[in-house]
Each structure stands twice: as C-alpha cells, then as structure tokens.
Design a protein around this nucleic acid. Structure first.
Length: 932
RNA sequence: GCCCGGGUGGUGGAAUGGCAGACACGGCCGCCUUAAAAGCGGCUGCCUCAGAGAGGCGUGCGGGUUCGAGACCCGCCCCGGGCACCA
C-alpha cells in the first residue's frame, strides 16, 4: 500500500497508534480515573464525583503468566471498562481497580527450572501485564493497584489469618467471636469444659482445649497428599478421578498434620446468604451442591454393648431398615466382628472365608487397592457380612451388619441403615445378598425397584398413612423422645486445608514454642517476610510413593526457622511455621484492599468500606456492585472469599456480609486450531480455506474448536490487534461480537468491520483530506433528530444491562444514517461521540477536543433522550390475514382502534376477496390480525 | 444417571407472545483507480416461475396452547457445562 494515496487525515491504524498513547499519557498525567474516597489519603473533596452515588466494579484479577495476554483475557476487562466509563459519565463515582494475583505455582516452577527468583519473574510479568493493559486504554485508578506478593499487601493477608486464628464460632449466635470470649466463658464456668473443670487444667491442656475451637487450627487428619508435587492439596484441587488439578499426579489419602480453616462452621450461612445475591443461578447451584447440606437424623443402633450411629435423610423409612452397612474404614468394624460366623449364615455373605475376620481383611485389602474412581466405576455392589447383628430401635428387629465400599467413610458417620425398599443402592445390594426388602412408602401397584417418590407410609406401625415429610418429623420426635437418635444435618463440605509445602506463598505468622503448640505473632511483627532461599522446590517424590513425607522449602532455612523472640514474656526460642498459604489466600480479600490500598493502620478504613461496599438497604448484603470473571471460579475462589468476608463481618471489620453483591460470568473467546493428517498442530494463521476444507502448505488439515493457546498455535495477542487496527477498534470488536456472557470464536478478519465504523465516525467530524472539522451548527432534520433520541434511549438501556453488542449496533445505525447527509450537525455528532466514548475512548477524546472541548470527556454528561422526541409521528401497522402479512397501513399515533380496523380491512380487501372476517384483532401500536 | 445452559442464514449474532434474520463479517455487482489495496454505493435465508414481480418454505425434531410461537406447554434428538454410590 502506498501511504501517500491514503487521505492524510483518515482514521487508520497509524493514526490510532498516534492518538492512543497520547491520550493514555494525558489520562495518567491528569489522574483522570482517580476515584475519591470519603476518608484517608485518597479523599479528594474537590473531585467532580466526590459525594456522588458510588459504583464499585471489579474484574477477577489475573495471574500474570509469563506468556502474556491473548485476545481472550481482556474481554471482561473491556466490558467493565466500557460499563464504568458509561456510569462515570452518567454521574457515578466509579471505583474500577485492577491488581495481580501473583503467588502460586507457575512462577515457582519456573524458578525451580531456571534458578531465577520468583519475585523477579513475577515483577517482570506484572510489569508486562500493566503495559499490555494500559495499551488498551483501561480506565483504572492505578493508585489502587497492587500484587498479592507485595509485603505491604500480604502483611494484611497474614493479619486476616491471625483474625481467623484468634476467633471461634459461637453456634448459639451463629457468629465468629474473639477467642478471648471463649476463654472468658471457660474461666467463668458458663461453658463447661470436657473432663476436668477449667481451673484444674494445666496450661498446656487449656491451650489444647482452646486451640481445638479456633477457626484456623492444626489437625492430624486425612488429607490429599500428592508426592509428585510434594505438597498436600485441598479437596477442591483434586479431580474426581483422584489426581492433582495441577500436574495430574496421583493423590493419596494420608493422615498428616496440617493447617485447616473451619469453613464448615459457615455452611448454613454460605447456603442461606446465596439468596441475597444477584448471581447467576448455575453458580449458586454449584455452591449449594458443593456445600451439600442434607437434613435428616442420626439414629443409634445397638450392637451388643456397642452402638452404631448412622446418618439418614429418610428417618421415616426406619421400619424398612433390613440391614446396615459400615464403610470398610469404619472404626467399629474390628470391635463388632465376632470370631465365628453365626450359625446358618448365608454363604453368599461370607465370600467363602472361614471366619468374619478373614473375610473383612480380604475385602478391605481389595477396597484399599482400588482408587476412588475404580470404586465408583464398577456399579456392582460388593460387600461382606461382619458376623454381627444390630437391633433396629423402632421394632427390635435383629438386622445383619455388612461392610461395603458403597458407603463412604468421609460422609455422614460412615455408616448407614439400609432401606432397600426406598433406596436404589440398598435395593441392588439386597438383591445381590438375598436380603429382605420391606416397602415403607406406598408405591404404584406395578412399580419395580426402589421407590424414592412421595406416598403414604406403609408397614410402619404408628407411622402408617403419614406423608413423607410428616413421617420424617414424627420419627425424629420419637427418636429424640426415646433417646435413640436426634435430628441432624450433615454437609459434603469439608474444612479447608490451608497449608502448602511450597515456597512461593505467604508465610504463616505463627511460631511454635517448646510445647510444640502454635503461637500467634503479634500484629507488630507483621509482615513475616518470605525469606530468600537457595532451593525453591519442595522435596518431590515418585508420583506413586504414597508413604513419603512432606518437606517444605522453608524448613531447610534453619537460620530463619529458629528465632528468638520476645512475645511478652521475655526473649524465648521459637521455631517458625514453614508451610505457606495456598494461592487462594491473596484473592480471598483483595476486593477490600482496593478500597484503601495504602492504609497501614487498618485493612480498610471503616468509612471507606461502608461507602464502597456497605449495604444499601435492609437485607442487602453489601459488597462489590458488579464482579466480572469466568465461571471456573464458581466454587473455589468465590466460596473461600465469601467465607473470609463473613469472618471479617462477624468480627466487626466490615459492614457488608458478602463480598460480591452481583456476579457476572463473561464468556470465553475461543479459537480454531488445525491438525494435519498425523495429528500435529499447524499454525492457524497460515491455514487457508477452500470449499469448506482447510489446507496448510497444500495439504488438507482438520479444524478443531476450543481454547486459544501456545501449544495449539492459534494465539492472537491484543498487541498485534493494537498494531494492526488500534486499541479502540479492538475494543469495539470485542464488545460488538456478541453478548458478554456467551463464548464465541475469534475471527481476525471480522475486526475490520469495527474499524470501518470508527472510520465513519471520524469522517463525520474530520475532513479526511484537509483535517478540518466539518461540523456545522445547523439543526438536524426532525426525522434524524428522532433517530438520534431513539438511539440515546436505546443505548442507555443496553449499557445498563451490559448489552454492549446491541448498543454498538444502534450506534452503527445512527452513524450510517448520518453519513450520507450533506451537512454534519453538531447536534448529532456530539452525542454520538459521547456515546461511542465508552467503547472507543481515545478516538472519542480526540474528536471531543477537535469539537472544541478543552477537557476530557470522561466526566461529560452522557446524552439524555428527550421524551418528546421518542414519540412516533405515524405508526405503520402490518396487516395479517390468517397469520401472514398481506399489507400495511400508516396512521397517526392517536388513531382510534375502529379507524385502524377499517383502514386495515380496506388495505387487505383484495386478499379477502369478499370473505367476511371472522375476527379482527387490533393490537394498539403493533399490528392488525384478520382471521377469515 | 441427575442438575443446569444452549440449538436462528455461509459465519458472529438481533428480535417486552406481534413484520424472523437488526448490526457486522464473508460473498456477488458497481463507483473510484493505469492497476491493486483502502474507501464509497447496491444486492445477499432457501426454493419455484423466463421475468419486473409474484408465490411457497423457513428459528434442531414431533405434538399442543393462541387470532398470532424463535419465544409459552408436553414428548424427543443433538451440543456445551457441572455433579456423580453424599445415605
């Protein structure tokens, strides 16, 4: 292309690349996007939006990877940027910050491979992300930017850990309270201590008792140990087939001493408060399922001198319990197993062994050899009789006790009463083992199998005739009255495993004294800075070495681990905790730090928190007004941050009881990838299409649809797009390509459409040959004026609903209507420029300046439609005959129904051909429907 | 297996129960140009008729409600996601 023949002042990529950095510098220099706080160092009473209604919009912050951004990453950021620019112009004080989630495995693994300190790679990656994001013209208040790896930031992550550590959950008031309040209750005797009274406990016994109530506690408990990674993992980080989400290594259940957080205490509130949130229903559902609350009862079954407690959601079916099952790992198995099989034991129950002990040992060995996945894959119900009988407390029936792996040790009590008549799994097992089946709910006559539906109780003595819900309540009351059980609720949710054997994470603000019990460091010793080490990797093992023991990188740094501190009772020797926090820690509370990022006295000043996140009315949770990010965080991040937020709320540090009032899941930008006949990926950019087939280098290749990624050779970067088209074109394209919440394929060749649109907007204002401003003060023609105001009304509505694609379509229509007009009126062009500015801010600022405005348009009033201009001067009614449009009439808006009707009938007279209409429906303002 | 989403032109997508396909990409034709690119203008769901034009068919499939259904109801099919022996 020869440069000289393109009109000199046309809006091209070259011009965009001249305009854009200039405005980015201007915004930075003038602090255009600084949002004023009500209090503290970021307060600014002179700011144009000081005291205005607030709007707090946030993106899920990125992990700055070494690969940089591809065009999919900023989709949500551009969406929130367009939305907040609009809202700022509409009068809101907008907080739209951005930060970086920078602790975590990739930087550490890179460090292990190259020896480069993770702090160095992280800083470089953060810097690169900042440059890439700035180039897109994203309007962040960059005074509020931070990385979770900044010591000034993780000081407060550690502070929150101490808040959690120093509190307990008071079930009576369903709230976390300071641990001192618990100790006071023990001391006063208002809360009983198990065993001995408080006064008789030794100091160590007292500490252990108190530690057992903390919301952050150390437990020797079964955890997910991953030898291949050399660390333990949270349940949420383990895939359903028992492997690590990162690295895909096998994970083993091991009992290890680890930090836990008592998230289960919040199970009910985490479920119930979902109802107050404006979140996508699927995400709420995923959280409810994850927490997995089941209401039912605990029932005690005597077995000799012992008793087995089961959990059931169907206490109403107790009369149908014909056997029991313990998980193979259940602690009572050995205790209740007799030396010999009882006389007359069904041979199917013994698996061919001579004694119950042998049979159970063999079955356990078999079960242990299987992974959880193998256990669930084989649908066949297996098990073995323990030789013991229990007594059903409602009818004194003796029922056999089995061991079977379809009962899980980790759920409920690890034991069930089996009711084959009403439970499909129990039914299958009962059939395999020739166990009796008693129906306790009336099923339809021809029904075969376990009946799990509604119906009146049968074969249940005094329960007979009651419906399921009524029978449940009656049975729970009976159990409680007779001391055989009680109403109970269980959760699938487990406490949160909070320690990792990694280097690149927040150190715990915890030391151990000579008793080996944890001691919290005082706030004055924060932050506990992550020390430099020579070797960043935990000790890893052969992926299948289940018996290996974790060894943390920090534990090797002896001069850091062993410290002498004065914690109030004189200098003493301590050893530091050498685990680090999981990657989620930093992202669990960052929404709060944006509010007051430089406050070194508090996590966040209460006035600032109340202003930006406080509840707006009764029953409102408070929180971020709009939180945008991918649905992949539906459980992990969003559950953990809700949990921490609630603890902070209970302890009085925040006024909101949820972190994110409204959640929006943006879709993903997908891409095509191509493989040749050998299955090898070829560069997508060089593939050509011919007659529906795809070719690379002359050979046919095959198209796949999915993610964008280096290994798929289909990455397109925002930097390329900025060079080829400019950031504004890229932004408009991403917002125009479809609704924000829907995934869509990237198509570079379609980007040019957005550029043409911006070019036409530019041309309305600027003469391409001379560079002169073409705009006149001549008023608009009435019809065009109406179009303008219709557009304003429509765009406002679309913007409020995050429907950017249809907003842009309306702006394009207006632009296309203005383009052929002989004169360009300021009356139309100025509102158009303002309406385009949320999407194409650099271009709009440039045009706004050319139109004679000396200041940024970021605070200009977004256009408001004149209601008088929204009235149509005539209405065109399509006239349908039997559902098909056969003509149209144009009438004045105030025309009465009768007149519309007769005009319509006259219009379609020919079609009717003398037939008498059976029915004529006039829908005012819409259409006329004639039925013959 | 259970629970959520979603199926509309060649493509991305529009459409409070009221004219299906806005807007854009691509394609075709034209203007400009020595030429090409860029830009500008026109046409572009499918089928039938020689045609201006007219008619028919069309929102995954089959029924239904309604004057009227892409949208609502019932039963299927397909695609994507989540959960999965949770008692």
């Amino acid at each position: 292309m020869s440069e000289s023949e393109t009109p000199r002042f046309r809006y091209t990529a070259a011009l965009a690349n001249e305009i854009e950095p200039r405005w980015q510098a201007w915004w930075a220099e003038h602090g255009t996007f600084y949002a004023p706080n009500p209090a503290g160092d970021l307060a600014d009473p002179a700011h144009p939006r000081a005291g205005a209604p607030k709007l707090h919009v946030q993106d899920m912050f990125p992990y700055p990877s070494g690969a940089g951004l591809h065009v999919g990453h900023p989709l949500g950021y551009i969406g929130t940027d367009s939305y907040t620019r609009y809202k700022r112009m509409a009068g809101f004080n907008v907080l739209h910050p951005m930060g970086f989630d920078a602790f975590g495995l990739p930087a550490e693994q890179y460090a292990v491979q190259t020896g480069t300190h993770p702090a160095i790679t992280t800083a470089a990656n953060v810097e690169r992300y900042k440059v890439q994001l700035r180039r897109l013209g994203l309007a962040y208040d960059d005074r509020r930017s931070f990385a979770t790896t900044d010591p000034e930031y993780y000081r407060w992550t550690q502070w929150i850990f101490l808040q959690v550590f120093n509190s307990w959950y008071d079930e009576k008031i369903r709230k976390a309270r300071p641990i001192a309040a618990l100790i006071a209750e023990f001391e006063a005797g208002t809360r009983p201590t198990p065993g001995k009274p408080w006064a008789e406990l030794s100091p160590i016994e007292r500490r252990k008792l108190v530690d057992g109530h903390r919301l952050a506690y150390i437990s020797e408990a079964p955890v997910n140990w991953c030898p291949g990674l050399g660390t333990v993992l949270a349940n949420e980080e383990v895939t359903p087939d028992g492997r690590s989400e990162r690295g895909n290594f096998p994970v083993f259940q091991r009992s290890l001493r680890q930090w836990m957080m008592r998230i289960t205490a919040y199970g009910d509130r985490l479920i119930e408060d979902l109802d107050t949130l404006d979140w996508p229903e699927p995400v709420k559902l995923m959280q409810r399922n994850w927490i997995g609350r089941s209401r039912g009862a605990h029932v005690d079954f005597p077995v000799g001198s012992d008793q087995i407690t089961v959990f059931t959601t169907r206490p109403d079916t107790l009369f149908g319990a014909t056997y029991m099952v313990l998980a193979p790992e259940h602690e009572l198995v050995n205790k209740i197993t007799p030396a010999e099989w009882p006389d007359g034991t069904n041979r199917k129950w013994t698996a061919g062994f001579d004694t119950p002990g042998e049979a159970i040992a063999a079955y356990r060995a078999e079960a242990a050899a299987k992974t959880d996945q193998e256990r669930t894959e084989s649908k066949e119900k297996t098990g073995v009789f323990t030789g013991a009988y229990a007594t059903n407390p409602v009818n004194q029936q003796r029922i056999p006790v089995f061991v079977a792996d379809y009962v899980l040790a980790g759920y409920g009590t690890g034991a069930i009463m089996a009711v084959p008549g009403q439970d499909e799994r129990d039914w299958e097992f009962a059939e395999n083992f020739e166990l009796p089946i008693i129906r306790t709910v009336k099923a339809p006559d021809d029904f075969v199998g376990a009946f799990t539906g509604e119906g009146p109780a049968i074969n249940s003595d005094w329960l007979d005739g009651k419906g399921v819900a009524e029978a449940k309540a009656a049975m729970i009351a009976w159990l409680e009255q007779h001391g055989h059980g009680r109403g109970a609720t269980t959760y699938r949710l487990r406490d949160w495993l909070f320690s990792r054997q990694r280097y690149w994470g927040e150190p715990f603000p915890i030391v151990y004294d000579e008793s080996g019990l944890p001691v919290a460091l005082p706030d004055s010793m924060l932050p506990v800075v992550l020390p430099d080490v020579d070797d960043f990797s935990p000790r890893t093992f052969a992926p299948d070495d289940a018996d290996s023991e974790p060894e943390t990188p920090l534990s090797r740094k002896k001069d850091w681990v062993e410290v002498e501190l004065d914690l109030g009772d004189g200098p003493k020797k301590y050893t530091r905790e050498t685990n680090t926090m999981p990657q989620w820690a930093g992202s669990c509370w960052y929404e709060l730090r944006y509010l007051d990022p430089r406050n070194d006295k508090a996590l966040v000043d209460p006035d600032n928190e109340a202003y930006w996140m406080g509840p707006q009315r009764d029953g409102d949770s408070g929180g971020v007004d709009l939180y945008v990010g991918g649905v992949e965080h539906a459980v992990l991040h969003l559950l953990y941050s809700r949990f921490w937020h609630k603890v902070l709320y209970d302890l009085g540090h925040v006024s909101s009881f949820e972190p994110f009032r409204k959640l929006f899941n943006q879709g993903y930008i997908q891409a095509y990838a191509y493989r040749d006949a050998r299955g090898v990926i070829v560069p997508a950019e060089e593939v050509v299409e011919r007659d529906g087939a795809y070719f690379y280098d002359g050979n046919e290749v095959f198209r796949e649809y999915g993610k964008m990624g280096k290994s798929l050779k289909n990455v397109v970067t925002p930097d390329e797009m900025c060079e080829q088209y400019g950031a504004d074109t890229f932004r408009v394209y991403e917002m125009a390509m479809g609704p924000l919440d829907v995934s869509r394929p990237w198509e570079t060749r379609a980007v040019v459409g957005s550029q043409r649109f911006l070019q036409r907007v530019w041309r309305l204002v600027v003469d391409e040959e001379t560079g002169a401003v073409r705009v006149t003060d001549q008023p608009l023609e009435p019809a065009v004026r109406k179009h303008l105001h219709r557009t304003i009304a429509g765009v406002r509505e679309d913007m409020d609903e995050l429907r950017f694609n249809t907003a842009i379509a309306k702006l394009i229509e207006l632009t296309n209507a203005l383009t052929p007009l002989p004169v360009v009126s300021r009356e139309a062009v100025e509102p158009l420029v303002l309406m385009v500015s949320p999407f194409a801010p650099h271009l709009a600022e440039e045009l706004w300046r050319k139109l004679g405005h000396p200041d940024t348009l970021a605070y200009a009033d977004f256009p408001v439609a004149d209601p008088a201009q929204l009235k149509a001067e005539s209405i065109t009614y399509p006239v349908q005959v039997n559902g098909k449009v056969r003509g149209r009439i144009s009438v004045a808006p105030e025309t009465g129904e009768a007149d519309v009707r007769s005009a319509a009938l006259a219009e379609v007279g020919e079609v009717l051909a003398g037939r008498e209409p059976r029915k004529v429906i006039v829908v005012p303002g819409r259409l006329v429907s004639v039925v013959v």
